[in-house]
Amino acid sequence: MSGTVLVLNSGSSSLKYQLVDPEDGSRLAVGLVDRIGEASSTIEHDADGTTTERHATVRSHQEALRTVIGLFDEVGPRLADAHVLAVGHRVVMGGQEFAGPALIDDDVLATIERLAPLAPLHNPANLAGIEVARELLPDVPHVAVFDTAFFHDLPAAAATYALDREVAQQHGIRRYGFHGTSHQYVSRTAAAFLGRDLADLRQIVLHLGNGASASAIAGGRPVDTSMGLTPLEGLVMGTRTGDIDPAVVLHLARSAGMGIDELDALLNRRSGMRGLTGHNDMREVHRLAAEGDEAARLGLDVYVHRLKKYVGAYTAVLGGLDVLAFTAGVGENDAEVRARVAAGLDVLGIRVDPERNVERGDDVRRISPEGAAVDVLVVPTDEEITIAHEAISLL
């Protein structure tokens, strides 16, 4: 092992981390500090086949990272012995300013902060994690890897909204796209799994987690993606609306007297599957639907309907399809959603083998039948190894 990268993903109330060997992709440690700022926080640290779990009050991201560094020293592997080459930070919004990873300095920090209004749920938390990590780990370079970078060079026709041109330019309004590290990793991994040249493939990647996004990728380059100016647009998500008539916002402001903050909370935190069914855990939604709950059944119908629309639209944008890949929590584990998305899409060459579809595993697997025109795959995403590779490539 020539060196490692400490990958940090700082959320509003959590800190996820991995110590990664970028050469072989192995994890020396994986961990999570959850419910930061609450009365009881959960700390998990997995290293060398051993899980250390604790409960304590962790008041801030600074305290969380101090706890993590302490665990590395206490139960290993010691960071001082791991030859940490860089700390790689996931940052959601990079705007038009960042087309790739960036070595973090004060100017980069200021730009991330300036872009926070475009990702208000994410960038402030990412920024907090960076500031704490730079303070506690000052002797290694820190690299920001942006969710938006993979989509930086979307074709103008896909990136441009039909909005007054001067207003759009003045306020930086365009489609930025998100989950870029996942879409990049999955599309490249799919090509390697199939033994085909990435440049020859037309792919649709469905990243289905609590946040969800779709991308159309031609020859390894994205040509469209469902998330837009912010991570709110596109697919139905755990708590976010996805696509919605913008006049709904105007109507609620006028008729219900809702202010900006209330509307923001409604669209981002009280909608999606939670708004439709009362739950943003798809396992619970499936359970309720199986018991005859009409709201849960409708919620699943809306969720799948939106997915089918994007698969059909992106197949048209690509001029055909070679690979459909499912990834992230729902995409990797929810066989019913995968089957329902594929149902009726034979006309596009998309078919799912029922037996293959219900098989579970941690590796890439094909769930389409032999001889199908489109390879339908389940590809476990790995954003952390992508961040590690991006950090090392920059250095």
Rank of each mutant, 00 (worst) to 15 (best):
L6T: 07
A289I: 12
G180W: 05
I244R: 03
A149K: 05
G238E: 04
D224K: 04
E135L: 15
Y17F: 15
N9Y: 02
A192G: 04
G11F: 03
V75T: 14
G312K: 08
R360I: 07
G172F: 03
V302C: 05
R114Q: 13
A290S: 14
V330S: 08
V302D: 08
H61N: 10
R283G: 15
E131S: 12
E294K: 12
G299I: 04
L300I: 14
L121I: 10
H89C: 11
L395V: 04
V304G: 11
A144N: 02
T67M: 10
V33K: 12
P117S: 12
R114D: 13
V20G: 10
I367N: 04
P141E: 11
A295Y: 03
L395D: 06
T386K: 05
A256P: 01
A119W: 02
D243Y: 03
R274F: 13
L298V: 14
P22M: 07
P231N: 13
R188L: 10
P222L: 00
Y176D: 02
Y185Q: 09
T230F: 01
E336I: 11
H179M: 10
A64M: 02
V378I: 13
V374K: 03
R283I: 12
I43Q: 02
Q96A: 15
H207V: 12
G272R: 06
A342L: 10
V30T: 15
S368L: 00
L276Y: 04
D363I: 00
L109Q: 10
A328V: 02
G37Q: 02
L154C: 06
R283Y: 09
D322S: 00
P138D: 15
L127Y: 13
D243G: 08
M93Y: 10
I217A: 05
D245N: 13
T67F: 00
A157R: 13
L28Q: 14
L288W: 06
D107A: 15
E233H: 08
L208I: 07
V145I: 15
S26I: 08
G292T: 11
D106R: 03
F150D: 03
L115E: 06
D105A: 07
E355V: 14
A125W: 09
I392A: 04
F146K: 09
L6Y: 11
D200I: 00
S271E: 05
G88T: 11
V186F: 00
A159G: 12
Y185L: 08
A159Q: 08
D281A: 13
L300C: 13
L267K: 06
H183L: 09
E166C: 01
H279T: 08
R54A: 15
R338E: 09
I112N: 05
N123L: 03
R356G: 08
S213C: 05
G329I: 11
R66M: 08
